[in-house]
Simulated assay, not measured.
Amino acid sequence: MIFFINSELQLPQDFEDDVVQEVLKTGTDLRQYSRQIEKELKEVENRSIQDYIKESQNIASLHNQIAACDNILERMESMLMNFQLDLGSISTEILYLQKKSVIMSQQLSNRQLIRGPLSQFIEDMTVSETLIMGIMDAPVTEKEFLLQLQTLNHKINFVKEQSYKEAKSCQDVKEILEKLKIKAMSKIRTYILEQIYKFRKPMTNYQVPQNNMLKYKFFFEFVLANERNVAEEICGEYIGTMSKIYYSYFKSYSTRLMKLQGRVEVPGE
């Protein structure tokens, strides 16, 4: 009786269910129908449990695969984090290389600017073997000696100029330049004095050795610029020799004039 009362109370709500309406129309016993439904639900539940039991290995395998995927993803995450850190390091290194590249570019530009003057400085300061051989071995009358003498004179003046600027490299070449200067001075002095002494020979046309000396006028310029005492000695010898020559010429000329004058005066007497 209570069931029917409850059923009557619930009918208005259950009427909305299509299945309930269909059961009421057919006149089926609700208790029996309810037990049937419960039985079917129980069977479905048992089948579901059996299905779960059958698929337990697959589920366990799936769980293991998911766990393995989690591990792989975790490792990938770690790798990506390390890669991100590496990218940060690379970015920092790229910035460093860019700054270093700018510095190196500036250094290269500075070296290119100074390369010309520095190369010229080294060339002016260096004493080559050609210079040494030309001064030491070449005869004074050869063109090679004159060319190397001009080079030597340039280097002597250059080193002297750099000495005022306290260039340390001057000390490396100063001694050898001094020795070459002394050698060149000795050879030039000997040559010029030999040419001057040729004037003193009797019946010598002094214009010939004078013309030869004019070809090497740079010799005397070198001596005058680097050793004034030797230049004064050469000048003294030249002046003394030419004075004697001109004196003898004027004396001979005067004597001849006197003789001519005596001959001219005889007819007048």
Rank of each mutant, 00 (worst) to 15 (best):
A67G: 01
A68P: 00
H63T: 04
C69W: 03
L108A: 13
L85S: 01
S109C: 03
I72G: 06
S89Y: 02
V102L: 15
N82T: 10
S119V: 09
G88W: 00
D70N: 05
F121N: 04
I66P: 02
N82H: 05
L85M: 01
S101G: 08
G88Q: 01
S89F: 02
T92G: 12
I94R: 05
S119M: 05
L97H: 07
I94M: 11
S105M: 00
L95K: 15
S109P: 00
N82I: 12
K100N: 07
L85A: 11
F121T: 00
I114N: 11
M104T: 02
L62V: 03
A60E: 15
N71Q: 15
E93W: 04
S91R: 07
Q98D: 07
N82R: 09
R111F: 03
L108N: 15
I103D: 10
S61T: 03
S101M: 07
S91E: 08
N110T: 10
Q107L: 05
L80S: 07
L97S: 11
S119G: 05
S91T: 09
M81G: 05
S109Q: 12
Y96E: 03
S78Q: 10
G116W: 09
M81L: 11
A67R: 06
F83Y: 12
N110Y: 03
K100R: 13
I94F: 06
L87W: 03
Q112C: 04
M76K: 15
N71E: 11
Q107E: 13
L85H: 07
S91L: 08
L118A: 15
V102E: 12
L95Q: 15
R115Y: 11
P117Y: 02
T92R: 12
R111A: 09
L108E: 12
Q106A: 13
V102R: 07
I90F: 04
Q107G: 05
D70G: 09
Y96C: 11
I103A: 14
Q65E: 14
S91Y: 08
G88V: 02
S89G: 01
T92Y: 11
G116D: 13
S91P: 01
K99D: 04
M81S: 11
L118E: 08
Q84A: 10
L73I: 06
I66N: 04
N110D: 14
I72V: 15
S61W: 02
Y96Q: 06
S89D: 02
Q107M: 15
L85D: 00
Q84V: 07
G116F: 14
L62S: 06
S105E: 15
L108Y: 09
G88D: 01
I72R: 11
H63R: 04
F83N: 10
N64C: 02
G88T: 02
N82S: 15
Q65W: 04
Q107R: 12
E77A: 06
Y96P: 02
I90M: 05
Q84L: 05
A60I: 06
L73P: 01
S61M: 08
A60G: 06
Y96I: 05
I59V: 14
Q107Y: 08
L118F: 11
E77C: 04
L113H: 00
E74M: 07
Q65G: 04
S89A: 13
S105A: 05
S78K: 06
M79N: 08
Q120D: 10
M79S: 10
L85P: 01
N110M: 05
L87Q: 14
Q98A: 04
H63D: 08
E93S: 14
S119D: 14
